[in-house]
Every structure is written in C-alpha cells, then in structure tokens.
Design a protein around this nucleic acid. Sequence first.
RNA 1: GGUCGGAUGGCCGAGAGGCUAGGCACGGGUCUGCAAAACCCUCUACACCGGUUCGAAUCCGGUUCCGACCUCCA
Length: 489
Amino acid sequence: MSGLQLYNTYTRQTEAFRPIHDNIVGLYICGPTVYGPPHLGHVRGPVVFDVLRRYLEFQGFKVRHVRNITDVGHLVGDGDEGEDKLSKQARLEQLEPMEIAQTYTVAYNEMSRRMNVLPPNIEPRASGHIIEQIEMIEAIVNAGLAYKANGSVYFDVLAYAKSHDYGKLSGRILDDLIAGAGNEARELEGQDEKRNPNDFALWKKAAPEHIMQWSSPWGKGYPGWHIECSAMSRKYLGDVFDIHGGGMDLLFPHHESEIAQSTACTGHNPARFWVHHNMITINGQKMAKSLNNGIQVEELFSGNHALLEQAYSPMTLRFFILQAHYRGTLDFSNEALQAAEKGLQRLWNAAETAKKLPVSENSEYNITDIHEACLKSMNDDLNTPQVIAQLFEAARVSNSAADGKIKLDQVNIHALNELFDTWMVSILGIQPEKEGNDSALDGVMQMLLQMRAQAKADKNYALSDEIRNKLTALGFVIKDGKEGSSWSI
RNA sequence: GGUCGGAUGGCCGAGAGGCUAGGCACGGGUCUGCAAAACCCUCUACACCGGUUCGAAUCCGGUUCCGACCUCCA
C-alpha cells in the first residue's frame, strides 16, 4: 500500500517498495567508525535515512532501525602494521581504545540529536558482537569459502565467485579487479598470506602488544571490518531484511563483501533493497585531509572554521541536505548555506502565519492538492527537493491568505496547518530552533521594548532610536513587526 | 589505467521530448516616523558539435571538462 518507489543499487533500478513482512520494515544503516569527531560527511546519511524511516512510519509501518557503531576492526593500512584505527588514535591520545570509542560515540549521538535524527531502535557495537562474528566466520570456513593462514582467516573470493556474482552490487568485474588496479603494489599488511589479492580478512591475528584482541578458534585476534555488519544485521533483522543503507563510498568493498559473507553463510543476499546516498563536497572539491577542507560538525555549528563566514544551525544544515536529492553529490558553500538558512526562515514564518489566518466562507485554493503533490514526490525515490518546493508553494498561499489576496475556508486553513506539521515537522524532521533564551533576559528585553514602544507612541523618536541603537551595539537585533517588536541576538 | 556518474540561469538545486521547479541574490512594489525585517511580483537557463523528430535542455553519436570508486572513508 505504500506506493513508495526506491532506487535499488543492487538491481540498478527504481522498484516498488514492499516489505517482507506485512507492516514491519527492517532497516540497517552502516554507522560510523568512532575514532574521531563527526564531520560534515557523517551528517548526510543519518539525515537521509532518518527521513526514509519517518516516511515509512508515516505510512503506518513499524520500523526496526538498526545502526551500528564500529569500534573495532578497521585496518589503518598506511604502514601501521596491523594496528587498527582505534588503537592508533588511542596511542596518540594516551587513552584506552574503548575510551576513544565512547568519546566519539557520544559525540556522534549528540550530533544526531541536534540534527533531530531519531535514535535507532538498536545501536549495536562491533566489540559487543565478537561471538556472533566468530560464529559467522566459522560457518563460512565450513562452507569452504574461507581459509586460515597464519592465525588469520580470509574470505576466498575466487572460490565464492565460481558460483556467485562477486562484484554485482558495485558493478565490478572480478577479472578487472584481479588484473587492473594492481599496477601499484598493495601495501596492505598480510597481503602475502592471501591466495588472491582480492581476498579480504574475516579475522586478523593480533600481535601480543595489540590492545584490542579476543580469543578465537584461530588464536588471539580481532574481526575484519566487513563481518561485523553481516553478523549484527543478521542477529537483529534476520537472514534477509528489507533495506540496507549507507554511503556510496561503502559500495566497494564493504557492502560487496557483506553480500558475499552473508550469501556464503545463509545462502541469501541479506537485503532486498540496497540504498546509497551520495557524498558531500566543499566548494566543488571532495573533503580530504590533504586539501585541508574538512569541517567538523561542531565547527559548522559554531562558525569556527577558516572556510566558514558564519555559524550555521543544525536545522539549516538539515534543510540544506534535504534540498538536494540523496543520490546526487551535494556541494557546500557559504552562499548555499545562507540561501538555505533564509529559505528555511521563510518557511517558518509562513507556518506561523498559517496559525492565525482569517477564515472565509469559501476557498480559492485546495490545499489537498499540495499534500497529494508531496506524496507523489516522496514516493518518487524520496524526492525531498520537490517536497520542499511544495512547501514553499504552501508558504506563498499562507502569506497571500494573510494579505487577503487568497481566500481560504476553515477546512483549508486546517489542512494548511496540518500540511506544515506533517511534511515539514514530522516527515522532513525540521523543528523550530528555540535557542532557549532565558526568561530573565527575555523579561528585561520585553521591558525595554515596551518602553521603546511608549516612546514611539509619544513620537519621541530620539529616545526610541537611542534604545534600539544601544541594543544594536550590544549585539541585539530589533525588528518592528505589525504586532509589536521582537528581539534576537 | 579500469568502472560508474555528472555538466541546468549570478549561486545552490529539481525536472525531463512541447506545458512555472523551488530557494537565495538582483530588480520593481507594499508596509513603515526612520531603519531593519516581512510580504507580493519579476528575471527564463539547460557544456560543445552533429543527428533523430513537426518539436530536444530532455533521445542517439562524438568532443571537452568535472567528480566518485578501484586502499580506510559517510
């Protein structure tokens, strides 16, 4: 009944979404590796899939949303032999690896909260599912699709490819993988243990000094990166679930490998739909350490970064992200952010205006049309930019009705308010941002504004301007509206 | 080098064989003691060269540029 059409990376087609179970949707999203503070790139996925989840729930589905925390298992790969990212960062900061993971997990969740991303129903950690991962690796070994080598276990890609299509998801051809790209010798540690360079680690032997290690049938070690998602998605959503999401950069090798692992173990591609969002660029360039253009989320919120002309609020960022389609690249710039900020403000003003519109006998506009258009856009592979365009149409109607240029009856005024509530707040997840001005300050400000209003009424403009000028000098912005003055900092 | 994707008005960004995307900026106007804000209206674009078609920004071929992935990455 959903009507939702979703682009499935696996089939490279837009398909009608139907859940496996009647009204329940299993949704697994690849979460962050928690070894550093969240940056802009970390924000898009949570927001995009939050909107998907909200829309599914709006349609009456019960969603089980699982998003993992990767706190173990990533090889550093640039010369730091066998050391994983968390251990490396721990060494640098002189902390326990779990301390690092905890710090940045908290930071990531705080970012999500400020972005108004609903918390996942389950947030499993890789380090808490070592047993499940070992069991899965054993199953793959027993299936003859993995082999042991010097205390490590590798997935045998060539053996798997005899009966399965390794490379289908990411559009890769195994022969090309074997032949091409190999002009540069891989520096990946343990390469000489592999039967084939494309084999990937399921379990890695740990050196004695390695901090993060667990006992296994193959000795002390730690799991490879890809196996955690296979194990955790299976545990909480079953062998086959509805949607697996993540960034396009995870297509290969991560998701390709997940499919291979799960298939080797259960015989099934674990997800019906593979959904991928595109990446974020800054001023037309990708974010990279070498380009020195990485922006942390905190820096964006505070404006404290060389590339930023000002601070941008979480809702501005969220709105900005949703103004582009999730499968296109999204380019950051001050101009674009400022445009989003102003546009969002306009929407808010109109939504407030809609709450106190004059009621007419008849109606010159049918608000239901806008609602229908929103549904249609959303069903078309989550076309949030079009939904937002519809909201701006609603804003125009709201403002025009307030000016008496368009007549709306009670039914349509109600529908208009509901439209903003449903689409802007519930589905797109855009919430009003109250900076939490403390009431004492507001009390003082109201007093000043009243005194100024009195001065204006007395035509004592010298005094009213003096009050405004002095407040301006202190950083306050005073706006005179039709219904009195307002202030902000 | 291989694979895939993209080039839309000053900026961001949808769409897609004929019909307004939308936002921001610019311009005009309304409101206003002034200012700011707010609101209304306006601006009419699709990289280049061929082709198909009554008609192409949208389809086909070629060219140029850009990006992502191929190694950890959201």
